[in-house]
């Protein structure tokens, strides 16, 4: 497939005059391109520009002050901690799940794949709600946890659980199609030649999937750091303690502290931009080794 697209794409982009029966008149093309660009500029670009414009409205000094204020620093730290736990957890799961789904044939495999994708079709708010129903004060394990002195909801473990749930499929969904397409011939060859299972995994499988792995982790991390709905439900919004960056943005905004809200938001927007740049670079450079960019 990838070879296919790289051949057809340039042909369909350039429009020689001889093919005029297969394309539109120039004025229609210009009108359509203009319409599409105007729509994208209004709906996608303008909000992005607004974030930075509002953040810098009172100058760099106010911007910097908003970012170095103790509650903001605590929010940044907490966001990093939550991502540092949930991303590796889902990375480990993604690799294990794709190994067992892509390398073996067993009954119920399609059901398993569907279940792995399930968190994507659940509203973020429901993703938080389910943990409150389990571990919250009136939840199923609520009284038990209170007697044990363990707090999950309105504390860091709840934030981590909710974040793991919403970012659950990212790595697995990138790796499964990639490993299925690659097959297991190379691994079988390594094993027949006397390599152990772990040697085969580290020296044959990992090099084959490394860019796909990075791609999945990148998207997983972006969502983990930016998640709002799910963590909002389990956080309890305790300033300096259970506020991640997106939640801190909400609090500041609701307090009409717009410059500070947009300053913290601009950090998240920069994270999104870096993610997009690295993602696009991976697609251009290693498109053949990614499942996501294969059609």
């Amino acid at each position: 497939m990838p070879a296919d697209t790289s051949v057809t794409a340039p042909a369909s982009i350039a429009v020689p005059p001889a093919q005029s029966a297969l394309t539109e008149p120039a004025w229609v093309r210009i009108l359509l391109i203009g319409g599409a660009l105007l729509f994208l500029a209004l709906f996608l670009l303008l909000p992005l520009v607004a974030v930075f414009a509002e953040a810098l409205r009172r100058g760099l000094g106010a911007y910097w002050a908003a970012l170095t204020e103790p509650d903001a620093v605590a929010a940044i730290e907490l966001t990093l901690i939550v991502a540092a736990i949930s991303v590796p957890a889902n990375l480990l799961f993604g690799v294990a799940a794709s190994w067992c789904v892509a390398k073996f044939d067993f009954r119920g495999k399609n059901l398993l794949i569907t279940l792995i994708d399930l968190p994507f079709s659940v509203s973020p708010v429901i993703s938080g709600l389910i943990y409150v129903l389990l571990f919250g004060m009136n939840g199923l394990f609520g009284t038990y946890l209170r007697d044990m002195g363990v707090q999950i909801i309105f504390a860091v473990p709840g934030l981590v659980l909710a974040t793991i749930f919403v970012t659950f499929p990212f790595v697995a969904r990138e790796l499964i199609p990639l490993m299925q397409e690659q097959g297991s011939d190379e691994e079988e060859a390594a094993l027949v030649l006397g390599a152990s299972g772990w040697q085969t995994f580290w020296r044959v499988t990992i090099p084959n999937i490394k860019w796909g792995l990075l791609y999945g982790v990148l998207l997983c991390n972006a969502r983990a750091m930016g998640e709002f709905g799910a963590v909002s439900v389990v956080s309890g919004h305790i300033r300096g303690e259970t506020n991640t960056m997106p939640l801190h943005v909400e609090i500041l905004y609701n307090e009409y502290n717009f410059v500070a809200a947009f300053a913290v938001a601009s950090l998240l927007a920069m994270l999104a931009l870096v993610t997009l740049v690295v993602k696009t670079a991976l697609e251009w450079r290693f498109g053949d080794e990614l499942a996501a960019s294969r059609h």
């Binding site: 992005l48 930016g226 997106p246 943005v249 809200a261 927007a269 999104a272 993610t275």
Partner: peptide, 9 residues
């Protein structure tokens, strides 16, 4: 890629 809260405000 953009966190939803950022898009929201």
């Amino acid at each position: 890629a953009l966190p939803t809260a950022v898009a929201g405000i």
